[in-house]
């Protein structure tokens, strides 16, 4: 859980802004993969960091957001 917390706390404004709208994988505070879908990022991590357990997430887009799943 500590690694999970560290990875989450390391999500900086710069990082969030740079990857807005994309899925990312974070290991030790660094974005190690990014892409349009979770699966794309997951497959990259499996190749590059097969033994790691990253923090995955979709960075919300840098536009005002209201509830809209479509």
């Amino acid at each position: 859980m500590q690694k999970l917390i560290d990875n989450f706390d390391s999500l900086s404004e710069e990082m969030m802004t740079k990857y807005a709208g994309k899925w990312i994988a974070v290991i030790n505070g660094d974005v190690v993969a990014s892409g349009k879908s979770f699966k794309e990022v997951y497959e990259l991590v499996k190749i590059k960091h097969p033994k790691s357990k990253p923090l995955y997430g979709l960075v919300p887009e840098a536009v005002p957001l209201v509830f809209n799943v479509l």
Partner: peptide, 28 residues
């Protein structure tokens, strides 16, 4: 925080682990 033009939007993101029958993922 996410920078939007000249201002910053703050979003309530949380971190958690999601788990199914095959595996689990740490996500925000």
């Amino acid at each position: 925080p996410i920078k939007l033009s000249k201002r910053i939007i703050y979003r309530p993101l949380i971190k958690l682990t999601i788990q199914g029958n095959s595996q689990s993922f740490d996500i925000f």
